[in-house]
Computed example of a mutant assay.
Amino acid sequence: MMEDVGVSIRQYTDDDFAAVCALNGEGQTVSYDGAVFVRQAGALYGSTFLCAVCDGVVCGYSIGAPVTGGGVAWVIRLGVLPSRRGLGIGRALMKALEERFEALGIWELSLSVHPENKHARSLYESLGYMVTETVCGYFGEGEDRLIMKKVLNSAKSSSLSPCR
């Protein structure tokens, strides 16, 4: 697995704050808004805020958020250092996040992705996510997004309908 190549996936800690802020801003000066987001995500989504650690350094992260009412959650962030992309780190983070959500009884995951982000779309599609909607101006004018969803394995094996 990933540990064989010096990568491990673990839960975010406050010690990861600066590294995740830098990844969240991707080379930009870390903004106050970005720092607030990371700090609050650490408090709100503790068990579903994961870090990939490569050779002792945070090289990727993912954040998932359950939707109030249960059964459904959103992947709200996935980031990997540009120098580490294409090595399976994003895939490992997504799989670990899915496992965490399944353990919490989540049966459906949603995410949004820019229509022109071919690399991310390819990753998500290879993991079983399907485009369910296109939303123009999702994050404001010119910020269109595809909404992608995946039904997790626990829902397929459950004898209860996710509607109950």
Rank of each mutant, 00 (worst) to 15 (best):
G56V: 07
K149T: 15
G88L: 04
F37N: 06
G137L: 07
C163E: 13
T68P: 10
L111Q: 03
M148G: 03
E3A: 10
D16Q: 05
G46R: 15
L93I: 10
L81G: 04
A18G: 06
V58W: 02
A96I: 05
L152P: 03
T13E: 11
L123C: 08
G90S: 03
Y61D: 05
A96E: 12
C21H: 01
D33L: 12
P115Y: 00
C21D: 09
F49R: 04
Y129S: 13
S158F: 05
T29C: 05
V131L: 05
L50I: 10
S154T: 13
C163T: 12
D33V: 12
M148V: 09
S154M: 08
D14H: 14
V131E: 13
D4V: 09
G69N: 07
S158L: 11
P66N: 13
Y12D: 04
S110P: 00
L152F: 01
A92P: 06
L50E: 09
F17N: 14
H114Q: 15
E125S: 14
I147A: 01
G6Q: 01
D55I: 00
V72P: 01
E141I: 09
F49V: 08
S112A: 15
V57N: 12
E108I: 06
A43W: 02
G27F: 01
S47F: 00
S159F: 08
E102D: 07
